[in-house]
Write a protein that binds this DNA or RNA. Sequence first.
DNA 1: CAGTATCCGTCTGGATACTG
DNA 2: CAGTATCCAGACGGATACTG
Lengths: 129, 129
Amino acid sequence: MAYDENCPVCATAEIVCGKWTLLIIRDLADDRQRFCELERSLKGISPRTLSLRLRALEEEGMVKRETFPEVPPRVEYALTEKGRALVPLIEDMRSYGRRWLGAEGDCTPAAEDDAAVAPAVVAPPAFAA
Amino acid sequence: MAYDENCPVCATAEIVCGKWTLLIIRDLADDRQRFCELERSLKGISPRTLSLRLRALEEEGMVKRETFPEVPPRVEYALTEKGRALVPLIEDMRSYGRRWLGAEGDCTPAAEDDAAVAPAVVAPPAFAA
DNA sequence: CAGTATCCGTCTGGATACTG
DNA sequence: CAGTATCCAGACGGATACTG
């Protein structure tokens, strides 16, 4: 982009401006998530975009990526301290949206849970070529 | 864009995402500004973009436009209550930028004032064709 | 001064398919 | 599951010139 890097507002704006960035932070605010969980809660996001955002967030140090060398590959994403520091910003946005934009939904991953029971494993069968 | 309109965070994000939007709000936070003043403090913005943003902000009810039928045309922009409600968000961003992004500048229009003395009128001569 | 019109490049992000 | 590769459309925004 092209504005003053030294301005704290501008600098934060550059991070915040990505279309899904804030939503990812929001989804990660409650607890760590795996790639596919984010993919589901961020309904409509493409794997490419999610991947890009996650990578950028990781490079900026706001998200921590953890890999588990298991048979069904598992990767979890969580906020770092730097990332968590963004949460109040999101809360402000939520308040604003409710108060001035008439957006009443809560849009939290938990809210759109159809079955609260643990799905345990979605698809344990092999997938190797 | 394409995400949940009912989510307060998403709804606010759509407003906040425009490249210059937040900066305009910030510049208007202190006091009302005219078009050319914004053009100057938002160094680098094109009149087209400024015009578009201002118009959008006006339609969304965050900015109030006031015209003065004077010989050198004068138009001033000011925040509405709805627009002013965005200021705390900007303050959060400023704090974040300072604390985590190492952005130390303040980027306020007043700060980059070269000569504090009133320039009175920059170019009073006629400009009519 | 306060914009608008036109043109055009860039970047973002979606769709789809494929891999480790 | 967790991505990556490719292709592509459309939005965003800059430059420049011109008008009321």
